[in-house]
């Protein structure tokens, strides 16, 4: 089953300087029991994608085309506020980069974790026991005592761990995580990855995991999509993308990761050029101005070229892109 099926989704924002096309024909699938990663530079539309799924687009944002099918039935594009609120927090849970978005500063952590379980029918004691267990899993020292504490009494890293514990308490069918480990150190990041993998298996949920940390995506995700300037330029299994990237942007992005360098280099690789103006998208391929393979045909919209049953790249010249990262 496919838990989340986004089809040809386009989103515009109305701005003073004109219409900004934040997403253009974005398609992706999150199958049941899978962890799907999303990578791309900031501004490429990752948050817009999530907000569209959650029905939380800003007032000036609008879905202009496409569908967002959840659990095979509801098209979230047309679900009303009440319907959306019933899904959020129950079936679809979220973790964001800033944990304070999820935490109420004036309530104790224990109270907040009990409140999340209000429909569970558990006793207060049982709720607290579950909270403690979850806090321990995200490596909060002394969880029994810390239930009585308030968010400000925790370090930034610990606040994020608490937010993750709170999202997972609800056993959602889809967990959307937007850069949740960005503020954590490596041992903790790896612990969270392992925790997410574990819980994903235990609960049988799916995870849509947004990160610009390629190592984290490689380690955590079964499948991934690569976004550039509001488009999914490549998607496939994590192995496909890391071992056989076929979109020129993906190849350059992977080559920029300092993790690929075995020793200190005087200059780190970068991607010359700048993002296109989303108010004035180029005709045809969005990556043209930075692509060495660009030619005349690239000024018309490239097709989503299937490279295998699961591996797709939006590019005219995928026949020229086989081989290691550029």
């Amino acid at each position: 089953m496919t838990v989340l099926d986004v089809k040809d989704l386009s989103v515009d924002f109305a701005t003073e300087a004109g219409t900004l096309q934040a997403l253009r024909k974005v398609s992706l699938k999150v199958p049941a029991n899978r962890i799907v990663g999303v990578v791309g530079e900031s501004g490429c539309g990752k948050s817009t994608l999530i907000n569209a799924v959650l029905g939380l687009l800003a007032d000036n944002g609008r879905v202009t085309a496409g569908q967002i099918l959840f659990e095979g039935k509801s098209d979230l594009v047309h679900l009303d506020g009440t319907g959306m609120r019933a899904l959020r927090g129950q079936r679809i849970a979220t973790v964001f980069q800033d944990p304070m978005g999820a935490l109420n500063p004036v309530l104790s952590v224990g109270k907040q974790m009990r409140d999340i379980q209000y429909r569970s029918g558990r006793s207060r004691k049982e709720k607290d026991a579950l909270s403690v267990e979850m806090l321990r899993k995200v490596r909060i020292p002394d969880p029994e005592h810390r239930l009585a504490q308030f968010p400000h009494e925790f370090s930034g890293g610990m606040k994020q761990r608490i937010a993750i514990a709170m999202a997972l308490l609800m056993r959602p069918s889809l967990l959307i995580a937007d850069e949740p480990t960005t503020a954590l150190d490596a041992t903790l990041e790896v612990a969270i990855i392992e925790l997410l993998k574990d819980l994903q298996k235990q609960i049988g949920c799916s995870v849509l995991f947004i990160s610009h940390h390629l190592g984290v995506i490689a380690e955590l995700c079964d499948e991934m999509i690569v976004m550039y300037a509001g488009e999914v330029v490549e998607r496939g299994s994590t192995r496909d993308i890391f071992h056989n990237p076929r979109h020129p942007y993906t190849k350059k992005l992977l080559a920029c990761d300092p993790a690929r360098l075995a020793r200190r280099e005087p200059r780190l690789p970068t991607i010359p050029g700048t993002l296109p103006d989303l108010r004035n998208r180029p005709k045809g391929c969005v990556f043209q101005s930075r692509c060495e393979l660009a030619d005349d045909v690239c000024s018309t919209m490239p097709p989503d070229t299937a490279l295998s049953t699961s591996h797709v790249a939006r590019c005219w010249h995928t026949d020229e892109t086989a081989g290691a990262a550029a």
Partner: peptide, 22 residues
């Protein structure tokens, strides 16, 4: 612990118990 951009990497990690002392 350092994650690496290779899905097939076999990590030979030194696992640390969870609790960071206060």
């Amino acid at each position: 612990a350092n994650p690496e951009p290779d899905p097939d990497k076999v990590h030979n990690r030194i696992a640390l118990p969870a609790e960071v002392p206060s």
